[in-house]
């Protein structure tokens, strides 16, 4: 059990920074550029780890709590989540609620850390972040309701269990398709990707997540980047398992399917980021409410 837990975390910790690298490379290729090396995020983390700090005079201990929560929460949440067909180290009835609320805790402290600097830009980012997330939350709940209804259990392990291939083939296929789209939108919102937020923008006024971490430096900033990569992988795992629900029976194949799926997902995000412009801020809530409605339809399809 301990070995399982450590392996689970090891896969997460080692693989996660590759995803932002793949996204960046995809975008570069779309733009006709060479792009940074695939392993660039690892180098960045290493460099930040060795750097010193510059802290704002207005900040308090809450400012350092933000990066720590942002790093600890995905690690804890990953313990509840099966990686593809590989089972989760910890699983109990109702762990899906804990999973959702752990990320809410991370949001609370990231936004609080942003407000700790007293900068109006960071206040702006924090306000946008909490606004968009609370609109994405019902979508996630409807999606989980659909999955819970199909699986008959209340743990992430059962929700993303071996029944999924059969469920795709049965009448619930369309509902699962809708849920897949909704979860993809939630993934983009929660990880601040285009079309909801542009991680590469250089204008503070238009940023959401980037502006919240403007004042972090050195290892604290490294923790934030690492935490963001972990979050992308953890939330992406939900999508990958839903889209590639096969169990081969041999752990190595399962792992390869899972990691390959994650890489595909990263490429997909890169493609979306390359072909879309970001939405105007006032349009974002409309999209999110639209996705909530789509997920309601999915629920109706399953309940009928």
């Amino acid at each position: 059990m301990i070995a399982h837990l450590l392996l689970h975390l090891l896969v997460l910790l080692l693989f996660a920074p590759l995803l932002p690298g793949v996204i960046a490379r995809t975008k570069a290729r779309f733009a006709g550029r060479q792009g940074p090396p695939l392993l660039q995020p690892y180098y960045d983390l290493l460099r930040l780890w060795r750097k010193g700090f510059v802290l704002s005079r207005t900040t308090t201990w809450v400012f350092s709590a933000g990066p720590v929560v942002g790093l600890v929460v995905p690690l804890l949440a990953a313990l509840l989540l099966p990686f593809g067909a590989l089972s989760a180290p910890l699983s109990f009835e109702g762990d899906l609620i804990l999973f959702v609320y752990l990320f809410a805790l991370a949001r609370f402290f990231t936004a609080a850390a942003a407000l700790d600097t007293g900068s109006s830009f960071e206040g702006m980012g924090a306000a946008r972040e909490v606004t968009f997330s609370c609109l994405a939350e019902p979508t996630l709940m409807f999606a989980l309701l659909v999955l819970a209804k199909l699986s008959g259990g209340l743990s992430l392990q059962t929700l993303f269990g071996a029944h999924l291939p059969a469920a795709w083939g049965s009448g619930a296929g369309p509902a699962l398709g809708l849920i897949l789209v909704c979860l993809f939108v939630v993934l983009l919102v929660e990880n601040s990707r285009i079309p909801f937020d542009d991680p590469n923008t250089h204008l503070e006024l238009t940023m959401i997540h980037e502006v919240m971490v403007l004042d972090h430096s050195g290892p604290a900033f490294g923790m934030i980047l690492y935490g963001a990569a972990l979050k992308l992988m953890v939330l992406g795992s939900l999508l990958v398992r839903l889209a590639l629900p096969w169990n081969s029976g041999f752990w190595l194949f399962d792992l390869l399917i899972y990691l390959g799926g994650l890489l595909l997902l990263a490429v997909l995000i890169g493609v979306v980021e390359s072909v879309m412009a970001r939405l105007r801020l006032v349009r974002v809530p409309q999209v999110l409410i639209g996705t909530s409605l789509v997920s309601v339809f999915a629920l109706v399809l399953v309940l009928r």
Partner: peptide, 9 residues
């Protein structure tokens, strides 16, 4: 750590 003003663009 070094202390500075909050970044104000």
């Amino acid at each position: 750590a070094a202390r500075a003003e909050t970044w104000g663009c």
